[in-house]
Nucleic acid binder design. Sequence first.
DNA 1: AATGAATGAGCTTTCATTCAT
DNA 2: TATGAATGAAAGCTCATTCAT
Lengths: 228, 228, 228, 228
Amino acid sequence: MSRNKIEESLRSEKKMSIIQCAIGVFAEKGFYSAKMQDIAEAAMIGKGTIYEYFSTKEELFLAVYDYWMDDYEMAMEQAVESHLDPVSKADALIDTTVNFYEKHAEYASILLEFWAHALRSKDDHFLDRIRSMKKKLELIGKEVTQQMQKLKLFKSVDSASFSVLELGISDGIFLQWILDGKSYSLREAYKFRQSVIGSGLMMPALRLLVADKIEKKLKKGFLSSNQS
Amino acid sequence: MSRNKIEESLRSEKKMSIIQCAIGVFAEKGFYSAKMQDIAEAAMIGKGTIYEYFSTKEELFLAVYDYWMDDYEMAMEQAVESHLDPVSKADALIDTTVNFYEKHAEYASILLEFWAHALRSKDDHFLDRIRSMKKKLELIGKEVTQQMQKLKLFKSVDSASFSVLELGISDGIFLQWILDGKSYSLREAYKFRQSVIGSGLMMPALRLLVADKIEKKLKKGFLSSNQS
Amino acid sequence: MSRNKIEESLRSEKKMSIIQCAIGVFAEKGFYSAKMQDIAEAAMIGKGTIYEYFSTKEELFLAVYDYWMDDYEMAMEQAVESHLDPVSKADALIDTTVNFYEKHAEYASILLEFWAHALRSKDDHFLDRIRSMKKKLELIGKEVTQQMQKLKLFKSVDSASFSVLELGISDGIFLQWILDGKSYSLREAYKFRQSVIGSGLMMPALRLLVADKIEKKLKKGFLSSNQS
Amino acid sequence: MSRNKIEESLRSEKKMSIIQCAIGVFAEKGFYSAKMQDIAEAAMIGKGTIYEYFSTKEELFLAVYDYWMDDYEMAMEQAVESHLDPVSKADALIDTTVNFYEKHAEYASILLEFWAHALRSKDDHFLDRIRSMKKKLELIGKEVTQQMQKLKLFKSVDSASFSVLELGISDGIFLQWILDGKSYSLREAYKFRQSVIGSGLMMPALRLLVADKIEKKLKKGFLSSNQS
DNA sequence: AATGAATGAGCTTTCATTCAT
DNA sequence: TATGAATGAAAGCTCATTCAT
């Protein structure tokens, strides 16, 4: 590695370290209440040093979101690529999402605040970032849905609409779970959701096959804490 | 009305007026960027006067949320009470929700910010308020679901879980709709959701009855702008 | 006086009070080293209060200069108006200038800094203010010169150029006096200047009349401290 | 040259190079707004390197002024030495001054700022430097004046006072010229000044000799742009 | 000797809150 | 009761200076 490359890499590493510390502070205090001082202290560096890497607090906030979403996107892409049949893909996607959300549950408030920020900001930068990620996820969902249809597993459904809906549902469940104080299993909630929706879209042949399992799941719900 | 009662009522009216003005300012600028001065100007009163009614900015913010949620709760309760059969009730609930969300779309960022605030606040006041509202809505949803089951319209499903799920889905769809720049009809998205989910929970008898309509809806999706 | 008028007047008075305190602080520390805190303390008000009257530090600085120059301009105008013959007018102008400069000697550094600021500022506001004052003074000087010529006291001289020159000389003498640590009498320096220049412009008739006095003045200079 | 001498000389050269770059930056931005970074960039060296040569920003500022004044002093000394008769000397001095000022017109704001700085500084260093230069120039002026008197060209006048006056006038004209946006010829202004003052101090014999030329100059002034 | 990443004191400005009227 | 002038704590950001390399 050349001298420049090493320096570049060191710089990048330091940036990451600041971002990681910032996540914690932003999550705990929120964008406005988080002080640059706090973040500097968390990263055990001087206040001025942050500004060597991010020119404003807002830019750091955006970087935090980016860092996060890149992580999520990559995981989702990998999930879909590492399976062949659409059913496994769908399962893997849900699994990845649940893992991601469980891992970052404590940072949910950043997500909300970021969305709020984006909706209000004159600068489209924030909204664009959100939408680009949504587009990517929608595409993945759409493809899996279409494969399901091709294999006659799913009824004929507008795959784009369904994919958008799924994304909304996914965020919505996560949000409720957080607001409900994580009092039930997020994974079970997702599975319950899958039972309800899958049950609605499956072709009769498939439905009969898994009817029993679905029925049990629906009856059981996801609120009882002793999950099998 | 006694002298005191009149005064009390006047006071309450003024409070409402401040809250209503605050909603607009909070929505446009967000909690932190909204200045008490802005709110006072919007309400055409002096800055100090706000403090006669609310002791801090945070309290006013909470009052804004309360005012809003009371409105929503009341509308939902009325919706369910003004219909007898559970299918109409369900339709009315969806209608009310869509109406409410469409009406307050521009205030979505407050909602997000409020949730973020609640998640972070040491003071459980905020979370409690959110949960009390969710409990109420969950109850409503649970009852309707149980009635559906009693009438053999719905499969056997844990009504509490389903109700919680529905709430999450509802918020999730709204959120996506907002983040997607309201580029499609929120109502159609809700109907699509209903088709997917309904299709999964309906008893075979009912399903056959509405199969055609549902099938069409699923094929069409909700993203095309020329909705019938 | 109406309620509004009174308030307006109070506001104006407070503004003046802040300006007067700011003069002292700016003079002692310079624009950059003068802290708003210092000025607030000098005025015995809160730091924030200054911003009720001046929106930026720079605006306050400009106000200080304006306040000063208005004072000077008014004094000069009054000086010229309260005399009829041009010789008395010229004497009065010099007298006024000397008085003004002696009174504000300690604030000379503000003047210099203001000029430096004006020369550099992208905003022409500062330079314009300086030039408008110079224009006014040049006009006054020009008129007096022309009257001198009309009365055959002065040789034929381009009055505009002479007026500009005089202004420069005036500032220059003041500057030297300040930089020389006020080690001689500013008044005597001005008189010496008058002798040199007057001697050069006077018509022979007048010159012969005052030759003696001028000669003495020239011989004596203005550096000896025991001024008569 | 010994090893040490060479190193010393290299060091000195680098110092000069930094000073020259600093002049430009200080002139454009002023002492406070000029960043050490800017100066380092202008000199194409690292920020830290400046501190190898100057221990503080203020010291560099002083060095800039010194460098400048040394330049001016040397030019003035050379001017007076390269002529024999006092009239030529006086002309050469004016010429040198005009040249110097015209060349450094854009740096006028530094001069002003430096003076302001000097007046305020607790540290007499700055004022002393100014005064030592003034002393030198006054001495030169005094000598020339005395030679003029010896040759019976000038009336009897206190040469020290006159020299101080001249210095003030010189700076004053320069200052006006700068503040007037250099809208006329500095050289013509100096000549006009010479006509006015010379006319006042010349002995009758000399005056008659140049009366015509002076009269024309006075009538013409220096504000018309088409200078002959 | 030369560098520039790191630093943190210190700045202007903002704004929720108070309180005299 | 209503007000808005006054306040000062607080925070983002800057930049002269240091020092390890």
